[in-house]
Nucleic acid binder design. Sequence first.
DNA 1: AGTTTGACTGGAG
DNA 2: CCTCCAGCCAAAC
Length: 113
Amino acid sequence: MKAYPDKMSSEQARAFQAAVLNIVRQIPRGRVTTYGTIAAWAGWPSHSRMVGRTLRYSPEAQSLPCHRVVNAAGRTAPGWASQRTMLEAEGVRFLRNGHVDMKHFLWQPPLCI
DNA sequence: AGTTTGACTGGAG
DNA sequence: CCTCCAGCCAAAC
């Protein structure tokens, strides 16, 4: 019995990345979710940074609505100015501090599939 | 094999 | 509200 998760094998990493992409695919238009939420749903709660890497570097991510992923504070990705424009175009509103209004637009995947 | 690098996070100041 | 920091962890050096 393992008290805590082992480090990811390369096979687990592939599965994780596939899971991340599938979750991103399900984010509804006009809503956002966070890196940490996606990591947890993919089964590796401490791997939020890997979610970011997957979306940034995985070729498949390009055809997904990855602009709907923001950090836990509602901040958009560094160096991706058009992310905010794309979100606003589908109705997501931002607060005066430049963060997404998470209270109204955060989406959480369903508990049971 | 050791170090650095992030599309991260939560907490402290 | 902001910046800084420690902890995080696979990947790239």
